[in-house]
Design a protein around this nucleic acid. Sequence first.
DNA 1: TTGTAAGCGTTATCAG
DNA 2: CTGATAACGCTTACAA
Lengths: 330, 330
Amino acid sequence: MTEVAQQVGVSPITVSRALNKPEKVSEALREAILKAVEETGYVPDFAARALASRHSNLVGVLTSLLGSAIFPPVMRGLEDRARDSGIRLQYANTRYDPKEEIYQLKQFYGQNPTGILIGGVQMDPGVMDMLSRAPCPVVQFIDITMPPVDMAIGINNAAAATTATQHLLSQGYRRIGFAAARLDIPVRMRLSGFQHTLQDAGIFDPNLIFLTGGDTVIPAASRVLDGLFAAAPDLDAIFCATDEMATGLLFECQRRGISVPDQMGLCGFTGLEFSGYTVPALTTVQTPLYDLGFKGLDMVLRTRAGRPTPKILDLGFQLITRDTTRRTGG
Amino acid sequence: MTEVAQQVGVSPITVSRALNKPEKVSEALREAILKAVEETGYVPDFAARALASRHSNLVGVLTSLLGSAIFPPVMRGLEDRARDSGIRLQYANTRYDPKEEIYQLKQFYGQNPTGILIGGVQMDPGVMDMLSRAPCPVVQFIDITMPPVDMAIGINNAAAATTATQHLLSQGYRRIGFAAARLDIPVRMRLSGFQHTLQDAGIFDPNLIFLTGGDTVIPAASRVLDGLFAAAPDLDAIFCATDEMATGLLFECQRRGISVPDQMGLCGFTGLEFSGYTVPALTTVQTPLYDLGFKGLDMVLRTRAGRPTPKILDLGFQLITRDTTRRTGG
DNA sequence: TTGTAAGCGTTATCAG
DNA sequence: CTGATAACGCTTACAA
């Protein structure tokens, strides 16, 4: 920066101003400075900037879903909102591990973050404690019926699961299983909606819940079918906690010659891009993933700007009935 | 940090040492300091640390594939290599836009990065120029036959495509199309291998190349089939630049009642987790994605440590023949 | 093994 | 509108 300043014949602070508060520098000087910046290939040092100004314009996004097909639309929303706001986005993968969450939170806290967006994995006390100490606004991607540490955005998972389960019942399915990779918070809420709906109908069977564990969803589909059929040979439908699970099960049914939707109904969750394109097309609960990113970051930026912001934002959901639950018989 | 130092009754520099070079501090003091760190909830300021020490332990990962199904295994490799190395990983999405690449590179350069890993999108001169000025080791995820700015890791895409195309020919397919979202570098090399193989066989038709453009691959499958069939009503196979494209085309063939593999052969590329589970299972070229991440970061860390490192690392590939090219007739 | 002094590159504050 | 000065929180270099 000193080099740029010397080249133009001004003091470093003027260069700083030309870059950060252009309106405070005369136009002629500003142009000369920007030209010199180009020529010298000057790149500002963010560490020094953050140290001196005490803010980093860095927003951290922590999630276990960074490597999942759910995340790309969220990312598009985040990035569209970040564009032209001066905010830098930094993603970190927490891999369903509270230790990793705490470690990554420390990494962010050490950078004077402007905001933290975190996918609610589980209510680990260490993580909650850490979050409550955050030096910045925190938005949790989580079920909106949970009390957030600071702010929350998401949907009412139990209500969505209830809607989906009622749809399965309305199509005549009666022996309905539940399949998920793991019981993170949103999935737990989905299970709860599923369970209550079936209990109300008098047909809930706790043996028909299958968790695969592990990272890979689609290859686990075979184990899911084995497990559920062992518990109920007359199984006729599966409510899946994610579209990936539903897709894997669809493939596995095809492989075994089980006809979908007649012998087996399948319902997914969080409509992924491809779920409308499988054959048969997947019934699913669509959630506004793009908005999750866009509006989630918006909550942080509004808070920072001191503008009024709801603490909890319900994005709503939509059941999309397609072919995997459309019984021709009844 | 001063607070921690006062609580223990030492100078700040001793706290710094206890944290960064524990072996240089007596054990008693070290324990007392670590305890005080816990109690006070002290989190080091990375900006100050980077400013003073002139290194950030930050490795930037730039890619257009951050939101793609290809990336999760790469990410696992990166994170496994980063674990316990003190390295922080930061991902940025470049969205196939050279402007975005340059912007993100600037963001990283401003942080004294320890290394940059970048997915080679296209040889944009501005990006290349920027990369050649990098203040750290740079590893390009790219075709290994391209000269890298610094280091490169990947496969020989043309050779892999040649192998796959020869397989299609050996199965008796003759009117073979090529489908891709866009011609980034690796895909261009695949096209080149595809083209040369068909030219050698005397059956290359330049009209049978279809690019969808855009972000969404699977929904575009219908347009691909329309376009290719318009060019060649007797089309009998499609070599797809990615598994996602192949999966979309498989669904679309099923929808149209085109039997795969008999009426239409389909071959994908970069074996994703799910490609072995579609029905029929997808023939594809498997590439070692986990290693791409693990060994890519390893190249950076070896370079930093002054250990000998190849400039170009060929990870190899493997053709996996499955059902979408296994003609029962011939 | 521990402490002192100086400085990393930038911006806040206050003066001109 | 521009500049001088001090400070941000930490680490390097050197000294005790």
